[in-house]
Structures are given as structure tokens and as C-alpha cells.
């Protein structure tokens, strides 16, 4: 029974989550694209001391945050860069990407990136419990961060757990690679057969939470991934 549930999570649910996420994003973006343009300009004017930066730079480097809350900015940048590296690191698990050598035991960053991201999420979450942010936050804000925190934390545990056993690594880049490769080629193989680390259950939890996150994403404020640049373009005019 447990094995079947694990299988459902690690294989079919991944497909459902990814498909759901992609369709959701496309629908959400299309809805905005179809809406009428605003009847007048929403530009804010620049001046010599504080040029409003170009939309892309403004979205990616968040100069307004840097200016008005440098601590928050540091965490935001670490978090977003961390996410970018983690996306890359997950792709790198696949056998045909080899940013880290194929026979490496670690994923890109040796687990440190995950810790940075987890810390940043914890900071985002904790600051929401303090006034005045507390008053403007809604339950979805906490839950989303909590979900992200658990996802990141379970990821951290997977990489940390590799040092638990006497003889070192149990789950390596190649093990995960085999699993992802199977998913990619629709082999429908049960990863439990290839991966036999004692903390396999943590991997299942990680995959489950990631699936949830992907399914929530199109309905959440993380859609700002796709709208941050168009939004900054409105301000830039």
C-alpha cells in the first residue's frame, strides 16, 4: 500500500503536476494578454538622480527594494538566484547535462544553495509575523512560504542525509539522474527499484511537496515570475 502511494507520487503525480502547471500558466497569461490595454500611460517619470531602470533590469535587480530595504533585498536576491541555480541543478541531474561531472556525488552547489534558499524563505516567513507586515498578510502568503520552506527543507535533508551512513553517499547525482531520465522518457519505472537509500521516504516527501507547489503556482502570486517584467514596463512607459 505504502509503496503504491509512493509510486503514485513519484511518477504519475509528477506528470499531472507538470501538465497542470504549464496549462495553468498559459491560461493565466492568456487572460491578461486578452484584457484591454490601459487607456493612458502609467509611467512614472525619471530624473537624473534616480533613473527608473529599464523594465528587465528593474525586474531582475529590484533597485527599489535595494534602496528602501537593503536587508530584504539581500535575501530576495539570494533567494531568486538560489532558485535559478536550483532549477539548473535539477536539470543537471539528467545524464545529458553535465555542468557538474557525471560521476559527481553532489548536485550543483553541494547542497549549500538549498541551505541559502531555505534560510531566505525562513526570513520571508518570519518577517510576516511582525507588524506591520502581519496586518497586510493573508493566509495564502503564509501557506505558500510554508510550502516552499518544507519543499526546500526536505531537499536539504536529502543532501544532508547522504552523510548519515558510514560509507558516505547513498543517493548520488546518478541515482536521481536515473529517476528523472525515466520520467523524461515515460518509462513509468518505479524509482524505488533503482534508489535504495534509507531515507527514500524523504525523497518522496520532497517530490510530493514540489508537485503541490507546481500545482499551486499558476494560482499564486508566484505568477510574478511571468509578470514582473511586463509590470516594470508599465512603470517605465
Amino acid at each position: 500500500m505504502v509503496n503504491q502511494i509512493f509510486y503514485l507520487i513519484t511518477v504519475p503525480m509528477v506528470y499531472v503536476a507538470v501538465a497542470w502547471c504549464i496549462v495553468g500558466i498559459v491560461v493565466k497569461v492568456a487572460r491578461v494578454a486578452k484584457a484591454p490595454a490601459h487607456p493612458f500611460t502609467l509611467k512614472v517619470f525619471p530624473d537624473k538622480d534616480h533613473p527608473v531602470p529599464s523594465p528587465v533590469w528593474g525586474a531582475l535587480s529590484m533597485p527599489t527594494v535595494r534602496r528602501h530595504n537593503p536587508t530584504f533585498w539581500v535575501f530576495l536576491i539570494l533567494f531568486h538566484l538560489g532558485i535559478a541555480v536550483l532549477i539548473l541543478a535539477h536539470l543537471d541531474l539528467l545524464p545529458w547535462f553535465n555542468i557538474y561531472p557525471e560521476d559527481s556525488e553532489h548536485m550543483i552547489g553541494n547542497g549549500a544553495v538549498g541551505v541559502v534558499v531555505t534560510t531566505a524563505i525562513l526570513y520571508f516567513l518570519l518577517r510576516r509575523f511582525a507588524s506591520p507586515l502581519r496586518e497586510i498578510s493573508v493566509p495564502a502568503d503564509y501557506l505558500l512560504l510554508f510550502l516552499l520552506f518544507c519543499t526546500a527543507m526536505s531537499g536539504d535533508i536529502i543532501s544532508w542525509a547522504n552523510s548519515w551512513s558510514e560509507n558516505g553517499f547513498v543517493l548520488t547525482k546518478q541515482d536521481f539522474g536515473a529517476y528523472l531520465n525515466g520520467l523524461f522518457h515515460f518509462s513509468w519505472a518505479d524509482p524505488a527499484e533503482a534508489i535504495d537509500g534509507g531515507h527514500y521516504v524523504v525523497l518522496v516527501v520532497h517530490v510530493f511537496l514540489a508537485n503541490l507547489f507546481l500545482m499551486v503556482l499558476p494560482f499564486s502570486k508566484i505568477m510574478h515570475t511571468f509578470f514582473a517584467i511586463p509590470l516594470n514596463k508599465l512603470r517605465r512607459g
Partner: peptide, 10 residues
């Protein structure tokens, strides 16, 4: 409008 939707959603 596009802008209003993006402001409300994001």
C-alpha cells in the same frame, strides 16, 4: 485592463 489585472494579481 491588462494593467489593473496585473496589479491585482501580482
Amino acid at each position: 485592463t491588462k494593467a489593473a489585472k496585473m496589479y491585482l494579481d501580482n
